[in-house]
Amino acid sequence: MRNWLFAILLLSLAFVGRAQSAKDKEEILTTLNRQVSDWNNGDINSFMSGYWESDSLMFVGKTGVTYGYKSTYEGYMKRYPDRVTMGKLEFTFINFSFPGPGVAFIVGKFHLTRPEKGDLEGYYTLTWKKIKDKWVIICDHTSG
């Protein structure tokens, strides 16, 4: 009888964990889809709301590592000064996992359609953390 109760408890915990992961995944994907919309509307300020507003935020790109929310924002503004340079963004999700409690990891591909500047595409890895009940990107490694 005791083993049976233990088995039910373990199954219940596993179900709750999966349900929580599904809810968390939905929240993260909602943020990413909103970021695409923000980008395509030329709103980098709103696009940045998916990132951790901290000096510890890391953005890794072809020029190296940028630390901090403000520096990351300024980097986007420098690289994408206008709508023509920004183009139209599309994300493709390749892998989505939760390596630990309150942490998510995404691998994906981005594509910028830019008829006047030439298209740009590459891959990204995003590390997310749930901070104060909100999922935010704490590390973005983008190639392209």
Results as ranks from 00 to 15, higher is better:
Ser49His: 12
Ser37Thr: 14
Asn45Trp: 04
Cys139Ile: 08
Asp24Asn: 10
Val60Thr: 15
Val107Ala: 10
Leu29Lys: 07
Lys78Cys: 03
Leu126Tyr: 05
Lys132Ser: 12
Cys139Tyr: 02
Asp55Gly: 06
Gly122Phe: 03
Lys23Ala: 15
Gly64Thr: 11
Pro99Asp: 08
Gly75Asn: 07
Arg79Pro: 02
Leu120Cys: 00
Leu89Val: 10
His111Leu: 07
Val16Ser: 14
Asp119Gly: 10
Ser21Pro: 01
Asp55Phe: 05
His141Lys: 12
Lys129Gln: 14
Ser56Gly: 04
Trp39Asn: 10
Trp4Ala: 13
Ala22Phe: 11
Ala22Ile: 14
Val84Glu: 15
Asp82Ile: 11
Phe96Gln: 04
Thr142Cys: 05
Leu29Thr: 04
Thr31Glu: 13
Gly17Lys: 12
Gly17Phe: 09
Ser54Leu: 00
Cys139Lys: 13
Thr72Pro: 01
Asp43Leu: 02
Leu10Ala: 09
Ala22Glu: 15
Ala104Leu: 03
Leu5Thr: 05
Thr113Val: 15
Pro115Ser: 07
Thr63Asp: 11
Thr66Arg: 03
Trp52Cys: 03
Arg83Tyr: 12
Lys130Val: 09
Phe59Ala: 15
Tyr67Gly: 07
Glu116Ser: 13
Pro115Glu: 06
Arg34Asn: 12
Glu116Phe: 09
Gly17His: 13
Gly68Cys: 00
Asp55Thr: 06
Gly68Pro: 01
Ile106Pro: 02
Glu121Ala: 06
Leu89Ala: 12
Glu27Gly: 06
Ile138Leu: 01
Lys78Val: 08
Gly87Trp: 04
Phe47Thr: 01
Asp82Ser: 09
Gly102Gln: 04
Tyr124Thr: 04
Glu26Lys: 14
Thr31His: 13
Val65Ala: 13
Val60Ser: 09
Ser71Val: 09
Trp4Phe: 15
Leu112Arg: 08
Phe6Met: 13
Tyr76Trp: 12
Val103Thr: 08
Asn40Glu: 09
Gly75Ile: 01
Ala19His: 09
Phe91Ile: 09
Phe105Ile: 07
Pro101Arg: 12
Asp82Trp: 06
Met48Lys: 03
Lys70Leu: 00
Ser49Cys: 05
Phe59Glu: 04
